[in-house]
Simulated scan of single mutants.
Amino acid sequence: MKIFKSHFWYNKSQRNGIFFLLVLIIIVQVFIVFGNFSSDEIIETNQTELIAFHKQIDSLSLIEIENRKPKIYPFNPNYITDYKGEQLGMSLEEIDRLLAFRKTNKFINSKNEFQKITKVSDSLLTKISTYFKFPDWVVKQNQATKKGEVSYNSVYKSFEKKKVSTTDINKATLLDLQTINGIGEKLSERILNYKSKLQGFSINEQLYEVWGIEKQVVDKVLSTFKIIEKPLIKKKNVNTVSFKNLLKNPYIDYNLCKMIFNYRDEVAEFQSIEELKKIDGFPIEKYHRITLYLEAK
């Protein structure tokens, strides 16, 4: 008993402290059990400022969604590819009907004819036909036909009678190029601007490099125009040309220019222009184009 008594023997101040602690614990437990911690306060969510803020967020979200949609620019529906047709929402069957029609060397000249050939729905036609861009002579023919002034055949024949001033692609004018079906004012300007950048077309394949031109259109151009007189290009010596002047070569970018200069520093000088092919990473497919403007002396 003495052992247990030693553990439970407290003086008066200690007993008072224990009693006070027990009372405090009881009060806390009662407060937790019976206290009301829920809030009856109702937050007003339909305030004018909050509604306006939400509307602003919604409008910004709609603008962002609209900006992320792929942009559609005016195009000639005769040159729709599989990829382009899929972007427009056409089915594979509709695209195949168009491609089969074009293989007969015929052209679509109105949105109604486009629907007749492809059998697209009215809703899809309404959606994409606003971006159709036909050649000027087709637009004039359609307007004239509606007015009953002339028939399709008469307009088509008058277009066919247009003559070019030259068959040399390096001497062709804007108007000469616009006689080709599929080439309008903007595209003819791009062709002439690119010809100026190249100092003239030296090989037929350079026409395919014009931005935004379809392969079928280039084929038509080359069926009318040829490279009769090749441009006189003063070639630069790869051993003495400066970095800045070498960059003026239309087929050499900064990285390739740096590679050529690094190789030149290693070998002291090029013994022949064919040494370009020995440069690690040199684009062999561009060799014949690059050497139109370079030589080794």
Score class of each variant (00 low, 15 high):
residue 1 M to L: 08
residue 2 K to N: 13
residue 7 H to A: 10
residue 8 F to V: 14
residue 11 N to H: 10
residue 12 K to C: 04
residue 13 S to L: 12
residue 16 N to Y: 13
residue 19 F to K: 13
residue 28 V to C: 04
residue 32 I to G: 00
residue 39 S to K: 13
residue 40 D to T: 11
residue 46 N to C: 03
residue 49 E to F: 06
residue 53 F to P: 00
residue 53 F to K: 13
residue 55 K to N: 14
residue 57 I to C: 05
residue 62 L to D: 14
residue 68 R to M: 12
residue 71 K to S: 12
residue 71 K to R: 11
residue 83 Y to K: 15
residue 85 G to R: 04
residue 95 I to P: 05
residue 100 A to V: 06
residue 101 F to W: 07
residue 101 F to Y: 15
residue 102 R to M: 12
residue 102 R to W: 05
residue 102 R to E: 06
residue 105 N to S: 11
residue 107 F to W: 10
residue 108 I to E: 02
residue 112 N to K: 15
residue 113 E to C: 07
residue 115 Q to T: 03
residue 117 I to L: 06
residue 121 S to Y: 03
residue 128 I to Q: 07
residue 131 Y to S: 08
residue 132 F to N: 10
residue 134 F to H: 02
residue 137 W to M: 02
residue 138 V to H: 02
residue 140 K to S: 02
residue 140 K to D: 00
residue 141 Q to V: 00
residue 151 S to I: 04
residue 155 V to H: 06
residue 156 Y to A: 08
residue 165 S to V: 01
residue 165 S to Q: 07
residue 166 T to G: 05
residue 168 D to S: 06
residue 168 D to W: 03
residue 178 Q to E: 14
residue 182 G to C: 09
residue 183 I to T: 08
residue 184 G to Q: 06
residue 186 K to C: 01
residue 187 L to Q: 14
residue 192 L to E: 09
residue 196 S to T: 15
residue 197 K to H: 04
residue 207 L to Q: 10
residue 213 I to T: 07
residue 216 Q to L: 14
residue 218 V to F: 07
residue 219 D to V: 09
residue 229 E to R: 09
residue 235 K to Q: 07
residue 238 V to E: 01
residue 239 N to C: 03
residue 243 F to L: 05
residue 247 L to P: 02
residue 253 D to E: 12
residue 253 D to P: 02
residue 255 N to K: 13
residue 257 C to I: 01
residue 260 I to E: 02
residue 264 R to C: 10
residue 264 R to L: 14
residue 270 F to D: 03
residue 272 S to H: 10
residue 272 S to Q: 03
residue 278 K to F: 12
residue 281 G to D: 05
residue 287 Y to D: 01
residue 292 L to E: 11
